[in-house]
């Protein structure tokens, strides 16, 4: 298919690509997914201005094909939000890693 771009386009730019039937099954959003959504809305609120939807999208796109092949929707969001918070110096990767280690050490998230 000729699209005037030499056939190249980014993975997320998928209009017109061949794909299978639409799977109409849906899931109820898990609470942690709603929290990710809430983080985005709160960070992008005018009074904070720490994250723009355009930055969120750019961050998701830069996760590459992997993001679409292996990650769920809100996994892509939290990955992008995290990377942009680190990029802006709001959070450091070291403190995030340390907090995750701490949560695991305390047994949080294990049945």
């Amino acid at each position: 298919m000729s699209d005037g771009t030499g056939g190249y386009h980014a993975h997320h730019d998928m209009g017109g690509e061949p794909a299978g039937p639409v799977d109409r099954s849906t899931h109820d959003y898990a609470f942690w997914e709603k929290r990710v959504d809430a983080l985005m809305v709160l960070l992008s609120a005018p009074e904070r201005g720490l994250l723009r939807v355009d930055e969120l999208r750019r961050g998701i796109e830069s996760l590459g094909a992997y993001a679409y092949d292996r990650m769920s929707y809100y996994e892509r969001w939290i990955a992008s939000i995290t990377n942009i918070m680190v990029e802006k110096g709001v959070l450091s990767q070291a403190e995030i890693d340390a907090r995750i280690a701490d949560l695991k050490a305390r047994g949080v998230g294990r049945p």
């Binding site: 929290r35 939290i78 939000i81 918070m85 959070l91 995030i96 907090r99 949560l103 695991k104």
Partner: peptide, 16 residues
């Protein structure tokens, strides 16, 4: 058990 991304969400939210 939680996925890596659930841990990530919790860590980021708590820190913020």
């Amino acid at each position: 058990p939680w996925s890596d991304y659930q841990y990530l969400e919790t860590a980021v939210r708590e820190l913020l």
